[in-house]
Amino acid sequence: MASSSIPAGVHGDPTRRDFLMVATGALAAVGGIATAWPFINNLNPAADTLALSSIEVNVQAIAVGQAVTVKWRGKPVFIRHRTPEEIKQAEAVKLAELPDPQTDNARVTDTAKKVRPEWLIVIGVCTHLGCVPLGNKSGDPRGEFGGYFCPCHGSQYDTSGRIRRGPAPKNLEVPEYVFSSDTLVKIG
């Protein structure tokens, strides 16, 4: 077969033809992008998953000095009923000593701005590489600072869940929570 040449804008009014091409190309591109969205959105959490994204926990049964672990969004959440000593210890730390400076007060305030120093609620996932730190069960090693100790790489957290020593860069994350009464906390 013989070769053929490509006719590029030889016939017709070139400006009109270019405009038509550009308009069509642009519209097709818009359509393509708009089509991509539902495919991407499809992988986002579904409505039934989102419906479970907050939980309510009754903390009445947790005695002073005790703690519970609850599962929230597939991760452990530590709820600790701190002793007055632990609170004092957490409040006494100078911010300058902290790798990730944050006051204890800021970490025990719920989304309704109410401060409850006796309740420490943190996500039990080490900020280093995602292990679950020890220290929420009685008898667990709690590290030098009396809070949490991550067995994977030796990160140590204090009684406010703040990082004090080890490779973790950040304090244990405090989830959004709000006390709807003195005994009922909604996490998420």
Partner: peptide, 20 residues
């Protein structure tokens, strides 16, 4: 509606291309 508009434009483009 979008595709009708696109089809119209595509048809015009096709006509232009084939005009010669």
């Amino acid at each position: 509606l979008f595709m009708l508009a696109l089809a119209g434009l595509m048809y015009a483009v096709k006509r232009q291309v084939w005009a010669d």
